[in-house]
Design a protein around this nucleic acid. Structure first.
Length: 271
DNA sequence: ACCCAGGAAATTC
DNA sequence: GAATTTCATGGG
């Protein structure tokens, strides 16, 4: 059991099941069970104390990194709140959202799966992908499969996932990442346009999936993914503004806006 | 039966 | 080149 005290600006429900990660499952006792970096754990908060059950002391840095605990989200909220009053309201609405630092290849695959899909079904496909091809862990869960493990699979092998037309996108991603044709490490440091173009070499990766991969897998917080929800939110809440107007923490602003929009569907109703 | 879902490729105009 | 259609699958 790992314990982090004095944790602020973290709400597990807002952060783990709001559509940035697809492997966390709410348990009957209120904790969240999930796997990251090949570690299967259950996490819960009590006040400002974060408990990670099943984690080892030597992984303290790994989990601190995963939850981005060294970042001061209060300061970031203050800064982005100056950009627009509605952004201030969205950030204040769910101040416990953090941008997780997920594994790059996992973020890539899960957001390939996400296209023209809904979160519930995305989770099911990801679950079957891990159970079928991920390394088994001591408690029966499975790590996210590596690009190596997936590189030898065919679309027929992936049929049980019921991923539909996305199956061939996954095999293409696995092969290009494993071969090095697509360099995920380069995407961490290259200038943004270059990083995005690198990911878009993969069939099935367009601007939006690339932006999500960069934001959630490489922690490129300048990314501002625009999906159907964000497009509506931009039109209704931020008319005339573009992603460039949201600053160097645009990705964090995006998460506040995305969550706020989904929690207020009436904003977009019958015009 | 119809529409939509954290889009992108394929086709058509 | 820009606009439209198609792509599997499942739930409402």
């Amino acid at each position: 059991m790992l314990v982090f005290s004095d944790v602020t600006d973290l709400d597990l429900a807002e952060t783990l099941v709001c559509g940035q990660s697809f492997r966390w499952i709410l348990q009957p006792d209120g904790s969240f069970a999930g796997v990251a970096y090949g570690r299967s754990v259950k996490v819960r908060m009590d006040g400002s104390t974060l408990y990670i059950d099943g984690a080892e002391e030597r992984d303290r840095e790994l989990w601190s990194n995963y939850f981005d605990l060294s970042e001061d989200y209060g300061r970031i909220r203050s800064e982005i709140s100056l950009i627009h009053p509605v952004l201030r309201e969205a950030a204040a609405y769910a101040p416990g959202i953090r941008v997780l630092r997920q594994e790059p290849y996992e973020a890539l695959c899960t957001f390939i799966i996400s296209q023209n899909n809904n979160i519930k079904r995305i989770k099911g496909i990801v679950q079957r992908l891990c159970d079928s091809f991920g390394e088994p862990l001591p408690d029966g869960n499975h790590a996210f499969p590596t690009a190596l493990a997936m590189s030898s699979l065919t679309v027929e092998d992936l049929a049980p996932l019921r991923a539909g037309f996305r199956a061939r996108y996954l095999t293409d991603a696995a092969q290009k990442v494993h071969s090095g044709e697509v360099d995920l490490e380069l995407c961490r440091t290259a200038d943004y346009g270059r990083a995005r173009a690198e990911l878009m070499k993969i069939t099935g990766v367009g601007v939006k999936v690339a932006d999500c991969t960069l934001l959630f897998g490489m922690h490129r917080v300048e990314a501002f993914p625009v999906d159907v929800w964000m497009k509506r939110a931009m039109e209704r809440l931020f008319p005339g503004m573009t992603p460039d107007d949201f600053g160097n923490h645009a990705g964090i602003a995006q998460q506040y806006i995305f969550h706020y929009s989904r929690m207020h569907p009436e904003i977009f109703g019958n015009d």
